[in-house]
Design a protein around this nucleic acid. Structure first.
Lengths: 267, 267
DNA sequence: CCGAAACTCCGTACCTTGTAAAGTGTTTTG
DNA sequence: CAAAACACTTTACAAGGTACGGAGTTTCGG
């Protein structure tokens, strides 16, 4: 519960160039500060972004406020606005920055399936390192070099297949959407565990007695059977990483049948 | 950007029963107010929840504050706390309430695939009516009657298949995770459009010239080709509902191959 | 070489949020 | 009829993003 989203009009033309500049050229050395008047900035936009990322890793985007980032840098809250036009833009920069941490499949990878598995696991690990990115995907993402680069890499994974470009994009989008959901599921389990001090197992056992009074076996026979199956299988059966791999194969099987169909119709 | 999540310790035993009571029995007539002292409540918990839902439909969960709900009901902010223990709990009630709006596949539905398609489309339409639910799934959801009921219905859709209960759950989970991602994608497109007054197409056309200067054809050949493919296909190719259906078939194909394998090994 | 422009940084201020605390008035119980 | 339990209100706090205006610093145009 209590996930919440705030909205901003979001760049409608004028600021768009500014935002893109920050994303694409912003951190290059000498790009800024060459012929500016006034005092030199005591920090750099990159430093601000890195500080904010470290903070978000430790406490989540929710807890990330301009004041806290400013504190961590030893400046006043308002001076951050000389580095970054708004909190939203800062978050965009943070997102594109960490997207640069994923590796492309190594050259010896053979076949699209192996390549996509590699990519999916990279994203999984990325979300483990920076769980907050899951709150930020979607919603007109920052078109930075790393977001674009990641899509390039993903498209390349499908290079040998008979799919046309549009279909490749759709398939990758479907996989990505699944990944988002699965990574969120795993993160939420981790967070709930940390916050409440209870593992899913402990929590469920706590809720169970109260729940058993409420669950009418005539109305919910399958759910009750499922509960028994989980008890019988031991709680390892609910391990998010296992479920992630399971769902990933399932989605890849879907892509496989897509490829097979395209192969038979096209030749 | 700017999606944000706040956290609460979340019921750890003592309040758990209270929360479940509200979810399962709360709205039944006469259940409350029978032998209580003090003045009668001017409204009901259900009224509060419905008001909050109407508000969230119109403005999103982000804009949903206790003060605004109280205003809409004509009471002071703090009196809401006599109906509902906290904002989080209120949101839990809202979520389970709207989950009750989805229909089960009609009896004449034949086969698991048709049934799952029906369920998926119901969820899609639900998210169109109440887009804010997408911010709330995951994260230890409220174990209300409708959440449980929906899972029962989904499990029933796989009744004729050779999958065991655990595998059914995994498959449904994978489908659900995909659905979440796809519905979020669609909602974000709609919201961004409303907020900025630009369709994705217009927005992209606006960003394009600036982007073209930045996209090195040697580094991003596939992404550039994809851009051309989209231009050639017309922008209907990016229609979220089309992509939703595409991904759904893909996931269902994955389930199909799962079922085929289970069928051959088990019998 | 100097004034003015451009810049950084800071303090203050406004508004919004969830909800704790304490007070007021009302209904039911004993 | 007194007291307990409740509904409801007012007030207050801390935290948030950022607009505004001021103070000090560096560079540019002449």
């Amino acid at each position: 519960m209590s996930e919440t989203s705030r909205e901003k009009p979001r760049a409608s033309g004028g600021d768009m160039r500014r935002g893109l500049e920050l994303l694409w050229g912003g951190h290059s050395p000498g790009g800024r500060g060459s012929g500016r008047r006034g005092p030199k900035q005591r920090h750099s936009t990159e430093e601000v972004v890195l500080t904010a990322i470290a903070f978000a890793d430790a406490e989540g985007v929710a807890a990330l406020s301009m004041r806290r980032v400013a504190d961590a840098l030893g400046v006043s809250p308002m001076s951050l606005y000389t580095y970054v036009p708004s909190r939203d833009e800062l978050i965009g920069l943070m997102l594109d920055r960490v997207l640069g941490e994923t590796a492309a499949p190594p050259p010896e990878t053979i076949g699209w399936r192996e390549a996509l598995i590699f990519i999916a696991r990279e994203r999984w690990r990325l979300a483990e390192r920076h769980p907050w990115i899951l709150d930020l995907m979607g919603r007109r993402p920052p078109l930075g070099p790393n977001l674009v680069g990641n899509h390039e890499v993903a498209m390349r994974a499908l290079d040998g297949t008979p799919l046309d470009d549009l279909t490749k994009d759709y398939a990758l989008d479907a996989m990505h959407n699944y990944l988002i959901g699965a990574m969120k599921e795993a993160r939420d389990a981790r967070e709930a565990e940390r916050e409440s001090g209870l593992t899913d197992e402990q929590w469920f056992k706590l809720a169970e007695p109260a729940l058993m009074d409420l669950l009418d076996p005539a109305r919910f026979p399958r759910v009750l059977r499922l509960g028994e199956a989980f008890r019988a299988a031991g709680w390892g059966a609910a391990d998010p990483e296992y479920k992630f791999e399971f769902g990933l194969s399932l989605v890849l099987d879907g892509i496989e049948s897509l490829i097979r169909r395209a192969g038979t119709t096209a030749g």
